[in-house]
Design a protein around this nucleic acid. Sequence first.
DNA 1: GAATCATTTCTTGTATACAAGAAAACATAT
DNA 2: ATATGTTTTCTTGTATACAAGAAATGATTC
Lengths: 222, 222
Amino acid sequence: MATSRANEILPVLEQEIVTGSLKPGTRLDETILAEKFNVSRTPIREALNRLSASGLVEIRPRRGAIVAAISVQDLMNMFEVMADLEALCARLAARRISPAEKTALLDAHESCHALSGTEDFDEYYVHNLRLHDLLYKASHNNFLEKQVRELRHRLSAHRRLQVRIPGRILASSNEHGALVEAVIKGDAALAEKLTRDHVAIQGERFTDFLSTLPSHYLRASA
Amino acid sequence: MATSRANEILPVLEQEIVTGSLKPGTRLDETILAEKFNVSRTPIREALNRLSASGLVEIRPRRGAIVAAISVQDLMNMFEVMADLEALCARLAARRISPAEKTALLDAHESCHALSGTEDFDEYYVHNLRLHDLLYKASHNNFLEKQVRELRHRLSAHRRLQVRIPGRILASSNEHGALVEAVIKGDAALAEKLTRDHVAIQGERFTDFLSTLPSHYLRASA
DNA sequence: GAATCATTTCTTGTATACAAGAAAACATAT
DNA sequence: ATATGTTTTCTTGTATACAAGAAATGATTC
């Protein structure tokens, strides 16, 4: 095998958490997981440790690991940071983007725009991701890129909650249009502002969002 | 013992890395560390795993762990993100700070200001830290606070590099004065801008900074 | 003498055995 | 019946033993 078993187990668990097949609060019994993966507890413990560092699982000393439960407060906080980091990406991208990256960005925007008349949220999600990814890359700050990716990954565990408002794809695509234009023009301040508004959950959209939350989000957590 | 041994070992190693008694690139042999701490390799491995997640240690599969080596590029990137996150703290603090927090902030600023005539960088560091900590808290975003703390902790491993320019304490303290005033007035945009300028490494200060770097920063890294 | 290949040694990664703390089950008393 | 205290059981945390890959050493060839 190219890599150790712990390194194989980690992404599988990660995926199960992110897709929601392992729900927040679920106990992650080391012995049971060891049987499931046909390994000893040792590599399981290693994987859990790393997942706890990335925030997806919570390890309570001597009391085992659970899938991290996130409160509404936590979610709001994380979105607030996410919006800011993405805005930083956009600001830097406006100053540093290369010609090749400009082409790719326009292409990704085209793909999004092509779906703007539809309500195909899943398909749109993919292209939307690609566009945002390109912006991270264009920031030419690897550390920032890694941080944003990690945070987005963590938030994606709660993507099921996403509000699917009719017409949202069109609106989002239009916001992208202005953003892409600002980045390509090199207008850093505008790119930053547009991204903040684009990512942030706010106003009536946030109210909608809250009303769709499953009950386990309404308890407090760390 | 109140906590497990791995949880005792971790902060010790962390401290040795942060203070620089373990230099970047140093191999962290599990067996040797196990002897040093009088434990088996198991808790050592756990501690190293967690340190790698926080970025202080780099684990190369099957090739052991080393103290993370950071390139100049990495440092610049991290400072760029740090400045932005602190600026976000300041912006949010300006909107959310409580009366009690205002008092504490003014007090911390007083402590800094009292040193502004001196060149006592170590003493200033402590009070400067307290002031910035209060700003993180006043953002009332726990996730953000945690992220900024973690990043600062990671950067503090390289604090030895800090340029100690004569008069810098006075300048810093003056910058604090304007920042504190903006936060207390509730001027979010100004607080944000002042913080960015305050934290960012830029202009001639950055040239000085570069010229003080030990050679191991000048190689490329991850 | 340099380069390449095999062998040995050393270190990491995993499995298993054991220790210790937490939760659960049970018994006793009020 | 509830509450408290004890015992048992179960799970995590650590130690040790073993397996497997990487680096180092040495042998062989050109």
